[in-house]
Design a protein around this nucleic acid. Sequence first.
DNA 1: TCGATATGCTACTAATTATGTAGCGTCAAG
DNA 2: CTTGACGCTACATAATTAGTAGCATATCGA
Lengths: 101, 101
Amino acid sequence: MSSQKSNRPIMILLDSLGKRWTLRIMWELRNGPFTFRALQESCDMLSPTTLNARLGDLKALGIIDHQSAGYQLTAKGLELAKVMISLTEWANREINPRARS
Amino acid sequence: MSSQKSNRPIMILLDSLGKRWTLRIMWELRNGPFTFRALQESCDMLSPTTLNARLGDLKALGIIDHQSAGYQLTAKGLELAKVMISLTEWANREINPRARS
DNA sequence: TCGATATGCTACTAATTATGTAGCGTCAAG
DNA sequence: CTTGACGCTACATAATTAGTAGCATATCGA
């Protein structure tokens, strides 16, 4: 079962984004399309099984699609990816890489 | 091993946020402090094992702390939680609850 | 002082999810 | 008609998460 069962949009979104690798995949896609295998490589060689599952989630949400150039963010997805710029800024400001747990 | 091994701040952040329940926990904390058990309940009774692990991650990142009133977002955490407002707006605009996968 | 209750949390096993590797089917180029 | 890239599936193993029980501490009122 999925971790959440609510029908509220935010819960559906958090459910997908909260799965391992989902945020990272969106992050990698922020600068243009990737092939399946290129995505794997940029995501630390995550398994094709998991990658395919996450691509399915993201497609179902309309965040990405698959064109001839490869997997890429849709217009909706790009909007969402903008949020990740804020995450990056926050991270650069607030996280000390040397204090890694 | 953690899913990512980079020392870049954004990777450290995505690594934590990408673990199951982390985003949801932050979401629940957006409106004030919760006790451990209240958090469990609001997060669909997730297991104390996992909750404790996530609270540890979030504490290590300085996103939450534990005062007498319970677990709550820090000033840094509140900043980050603001990003989630954007997520909510996006979700309400773009996700159709009836088209659940 | 004695429950009764709430707190945070650990221990342990079972179930779920992810990893790692091999390899298939399709296509296009040479 | 071989070679390479592509998207992806299969399957066994490993890692993560869930589910449940319960402990230790603190607070409260009787």
